[in-house]
């Protein structure tokens, strides 16, 4: 095996391991939203430290390959795309951390709001899993279609806004509802960064730039 093959495999494995941690943060975030378990929410914040550290290690490893092995063509794109993907994953992790912070500071969500949160969260995990699977299998063709799933997150989010507007019109406590929307906005933003992962993967495989907005 050529040395650069080994290095690129290690580099991509590191990204996949980072993506596993980020996924776990979301699964836990959705759990603690439901349970209100503040200790478990704290564990998400701690996990984010590991994710941040992963990004730095991926950057270092990428720079090492660039400086020592001078990759070109597809090898070079693996590194450039990988560094960008790690940066998006780090941001996606930050959004999960924001949800954990919300849980620590606030009371549990009422059942109806939780149903909306669950719907948005489940749609996100579906999008995220497909995007990471595309990365794992270098499947640029599917990666072009996967970002459409983000529309489902946006639709679920719109339903939540409508629900809250109705409640506000009925004269309910506004600050509490606004905070909930702000918290769930994190998942919507995470969806956008997941679309970026698809863009970077397509660039890695085909050398073409896509913009899914």
């Amino acid at each position: 095996m050529v040395k650069i093959d080994t290095e690129l495999t290690l580099f991509q494995d590191a990204i996949l391991q980072m993506s596993d941690k980020v996924r776990r943060m979301y699964i836990m975030a959705l759990e603690v939203l439901e349970s209100g378990n503040k200790e478990r929410a704290l564990a998400i914040i701690q996990l984010d430290e590991f994710v941040n550290n992963d990004e730095e290690e991926i950057n270092d490893r990428g720079l090492e390959v660039l400086s020592l092995l001078a990759p070109v063509a597809s090898d070079l794109r693996v590194i450039v795309a990988g560094i960008k993907i790690a940066s998006d994953l780090e941001r996606i992790g930050d959004y999960a951390k924001n949800i954990a912070r919300y849980v620590i500071k606030n009371e549990r969500l009422e059942p109806e709001l939780m149903r909306h949160a669950r719907s948005i969260g489940d749609q996100f995990v579906l999008l995220y899993d497909k995007a990471i699977e595309c990365y794992r299998t270098k499947d640029a063709k599917t990666a072009i279609e996967v970002p459409q799933l983000d529309d489902e997150i946006d639709a679920a989010f719109t339903l939540l806004i409508r629900f809250i507007e109705e409640r506000m019109e009925a004269g309910e406590n506004i600050p509490h509802l606004v905070a909930t929307v702000g918290m769930l906005r994190n998942i919507e933003r995470a969806g956008d960064h997941t679309k970026n992962v698809c863009e970077h993967l397509i660039y890695q495989v085909r050398g073409q730039h896509y913009d899914f907005g």
């Binding site: 050529v2 650069i4 093959d5 990759p71 070109v72 063509a73 597809s74 090898d75 070079l76 050398g207």
Partner: peptide
């Protein structure tokens, strides 16, 4: 040629494979 070669043999050569 060094970013996106057309031919697989070119890619193999420039990437050291």
């Amino acid at each position: 040629l060094f970013q996106l070669p057309n031919d697989k043999r070119t890619e193999d050569y420039i990437t050291g494979r």
